[in-house]
Amino acid sequence: MKFGVLVFPGSNCDHDTYHVINELTKQPVTFLWHASEDLQGCDAILVPGGFAYGDYLRTGAIAKFAPVMQSVIKFANNGGLVFGICNGFQILCESGLLPGALMRNAGLHYICKQVHLRTETTDSPFTHGIERGRVLQMPIGHMEGNYFCDADTLAKLKAEDRIAFRYATPAGEITPGANPNGSLENIAGVLSEGRNVLGMMPHPDRSSESILGSADGLLLFRSLVESLALAR
């Protein structure tokens, strides 16, 4: 299984993500430069955190027009696995691969802290190795993480079990106090209609080794590797 990590001008979690795949899941991984349309035969695409194109205009707004994204959109529409983290989530929403948008945090501040997430569905290639309801600890680091979608979209996400993670208390309760950024219904991550695209604001890439305070993020990457192995 070969993983591709996209690199835009301004990406800054590309090496973290590469490290997790290369050193922890021990899978082949390559960087994919934004200016090339060539996905180099990768089996899964990771869209890392950072500030692609300086977040100019809107977060992810310029990145979605990059040559590499035209290939990623085709890849995803053909069922390819795409995982966007933080700025990657913003890019996938702008690209239309995921519903909704990430707005400025409700408190208007950049927030960098550890949060807890409740796993809302295990029916995805990214979460099938995690028990439903399990609370994971991961850091967030963002200014625009306030998830929004219209009422019809929200109803559809719920009906189709496409909310992957919600911000929760350490005990797994979904409360306003556990919501760091004003996200609609504490939503921290959502799946595409085909369940092959996941976007989330918290950083599993920065929480895959216990020395970083939590290794919970590795559960997602392990799920992804297993899913790809099963698909072969």
Binding site: L57, R58, E94, P99, G100, A101, F148, C149, D150
Partner: peptide, 8 residues
């Protein structure tokens, strides 16, 4: 197509 995100 560019200057707005029609979702928000």
């Amino acid at each position: 197509e560019v200057l707005t995100n029609p979702v928000i």
